[in-house]
Design a protein around this nucleic acid. Structure first.
Length: 520
DNA sequence: GTAGGGTTAG
């Protein structure tokens, strides 16, 4: 067909722009974006009438393939051929930039279209940017933009989508009350909230532990005829699972069915993951079966959740069975699957099987990561093979393929401290600071415990200073260890200073006061 | 060309 179109074109018989657009759309839909590009290019060379629409179709296709270079090339070609980009052209570009969190560039394009291109942005353009800003935590700027839409842009006032984006932005930032205010504001402006508005607010409340508010809001809206969708039920189920209220989660699941929303794969995944976290594997497997009976094919993540849950509850046989099923079902095991298997066998002391799996993983084209090696190192530690753990660590440190991160150091430091090998643990603490691996309160807690055993209080003061310097907050465990230790030796003043973010080492008071001033 | 849910491994 393409050949035929081009044959006609060479004779001066051109497809209309609508036809060309349909060709391009169809080709990029079939993932033949290069053919689409060539067709359009050929037609333009033959000086066929090409306007913005087919170019837009090509840009959309390239956007899906994340080919930003070619997208720019299309823009250049349009300019050369003097094809005026329209508001949709800019919509595609801005959307692409926003989805890749390049908001400043998106704002630049907005500026450019208003300025030198003199094309008025429409409500879709604004909504895209407002959503983008909200998603990168710049919801205040998004809010300002909405104010601007209200005051400056006649014929382009905010709509329901605008508010949904903005509400989501504030909810994700934890400002639920602001989200609720905006919900009221949109109604004052006679904008009708829809199911997505409800889903967004319910999710926001759930995410910040206001589950009972979410439930109340959800029912209240429902009684007014404003229904959420399966998405709202999913958020509620997830929230109840996370506080280990499985009974309530299942109730919501059943309610969803009675309310006439057939469960989709997301709802099943949520419940299965919640049941797995709770260690209730039999029920998880029952819902897993129902999911398959309903005609869904579980994805890799769902399989991974089950496999790790089964290993954690000592159901290794069942885990292996699910692993085999997944291979048969055509859900290709990924790096996480292999990491899970490797971790289990290694912890079990079966390092031969673990190494075998590592080989298989590589053969299947998955690159072992810092997590893979972390699993092995952790297992060596648990199996009293500290030397092997250190050897593997040194191997990593000397090679460039995987850089040990904070977790790796934590595992080793914790292990060394439990063996009361304080010197080597301290050496690793220094090494991790030099290498820029991030320590956590956990790291320090392990070392403090060992130092207390060895009565090395000055070293502890030094580390307390390091914690302050690195901006790592003590957790309740840190406080527990230090309070018990320091109160017993009359050093509570030091602890007090530490909590206030000051330096505690001897003869360092001036610096300490400076740090206090900086902290305040 | 614009809005909403689950992500598992050390």
């Amino acid at each position: 067909m393409i050949d035929l179109v081009l044959k006609f074109a060479r004779l001066g018989v051109f497809p209309t722009s609508v036809w060309t657009t349909q060709f391009v759309t169809m080709l990029s839909w079939k993932r033949k974006i290069n053919s689409a590009w060539n067709l359009l290019d050929e037609l333009m060379k033959l000086e066929a009438p090409v306007d913005a629409a087919p170019c837009n179709a090509l840009l959309t296709g390239l956007g899906k393939e994340m080919d930003i270079k070619k997208m720019n090339a299309v823009m250049v070609k349009m300019k050369e051929a003097e094809i005026q980009p329209d508001v949709v052209t800019f919509g595609i570009l801005i959307n692409h930039l926003c989805k890749h969190r390049r908001l400043d560039q998106a704002l630049e394009v907005l500026d450019k279209m208003q300025g030198e291109m003199s094309i008025e942005p429409d409500v879709v353009i604004f909504n895209t940017i407002i959503d983008g800003l909200s998603k990168v935590g710049r919801q205040e700027e998004a809010f300002e933009l909405v104010e601007k839409m209200k005051s400056q842009h006649r014929g382009c006032s905010p709509n329901t989508v605008t508010y949904n984006c903005l509400i989501d932005g504030f909810c994700k930032a934890g400002e639920i009350d602001k989200g609720i205010n905006l919900f009221h504001e949109m109604q004052e402006m006679e904008l009708v909230p829809n199911a997505i508005t409800v889903n967004t607010l319910v999710h926001g409340m759930c995410m910040y532990g206001r589950t009972s508010n979410a439930v109340r809001f959800f029912y209240e809206m429902r009684s007014k005829g404003l229904w959420g969708t399966a998405v709202s039920y999913t958020s509620l189920i997830d929230a109840f699972c996370k506080v280990n209220n499985i009974a309530r989660a299942i109730e919501i699941f059943d309610e969803m069915v009675t309310d006439g929303f057939p469960p989709d794969s997301y709802v099943y995944y949520t419940l299965i993951s919640g049941l797995t976290r709770a260690g209730r594997m039999n029920e998880a497997l029952t819902y897993f079966q129902t999911l398959k009976d309903s005609g869904f094919s579980p994805d890799v993540v769902c399989y991974n959740v089950l496999i790790s849950g089964l290993f954690n509850t000592n159901k290794a046989d069942k885990a292996r069975e699910i692993f085999e099923e997944m291979e048969k079902a055509g859900a290709r095991p990924d790096g996480v699957t292999y990491n899970t298997l490797i971790a289990y066998h290694a912890k079990d002391g079966n390092f031969i099987e673990a190494r075998k799996l590592l080989k298989k993983m590589v053969n299947e084209g998955h690159v072992p990561t810092v997590v893979t090696y972390g699993a092995l190192i952790h297992a060596y530690c648990l199996n009293q093979k500290v030397n092997e753990a250190m050897a593997l660590f040194k191997e990593l440190r000397g090679s460039s393929k995987v850089t040990p991160n904070g977790v790796i150091y934590n595992i080793l430091i914790d292990c060394l401290c439990k063996k009361q090998d304080v010197q080597q643990a301290l050496a690793l603490m220094d090494d991790m600071e030099v290498r820029g691996a991030k320590a956590s309160a956990n790291t320090f807690n392990a070392v403090f415990r060992a130092l207390r055993e060895e009565r090395m209080v000055n070293k502890a003061f030094e580390l307390m200073d390091r914690m302050v310097r690195q901006g790592i907050n003590p957790d309740y465990m840190t406080m527990d260890i230090l309070t018990e230790w320091l109160s017993g030796i009359g050093e509570m003043e030091k602890l007090r200073r530490f909590v206030e973010g000051c330096t505690v080492s001897e003869g360092d008071h001036a610096a300490g006061d400076g740090a206090a001033a900086a902290a305040s």
